[in-house]
């Protein structure tokens, strides 16, 4: 079965990239940064997995989580905050 095969490094990188692209769609600063941070953390945790079956399971879990992120980005975009987070503003010394 193809699901049990361990993902290639390129596939893993593509999954992380998909997470980062999905994260960009969140209009809310806190959630956007959390999704990016959590995706990186998740990949770091799984970096040392050497067992092919465990790697395949982790990869499948990651793909399921990506689907969750996709759904949530739609929901969050429906209730986008009207005011930007201060972290989203480009503050220079002249605006202070």
């Amino acid at each position: 079965m193809s699901a049990a095969a361990a993902p290639s490094p390129a596939q893993a990188r593509a999954l992380l990239k998909a997470f980062m692209r999905e994260a960009r769609k969140f209009p809310n600063y806190n959630i956007r940064e959390y999704v990016k941070r959590r995706a990186k953390e998740g990949f770091k945790e799984c970096q040392s997995i050497s067992d092919p079956a465990a790697a395949a399971a982790a990869f499948a879990n990651g793909r399921a989580q990506l689907e969750v992120a996709k759904r949530q980005s739609v929901v969050y975009s429906l209730y986008a905050p009207r005011v930007k987070s201060i972290m989203d503003l480009k503050i220079t010394e002249t605006t202070l």
Partner: peptide
């Protein structure tokens, strides 16, 4: 590592 490289390439895109 390769994960950081992905991250940095995404930063270039933005």
């Amino acid at each position: 590592d390769s994960l950081d490289t992905v991250e940095i390439v995404m930063a270039f895109e933005e």
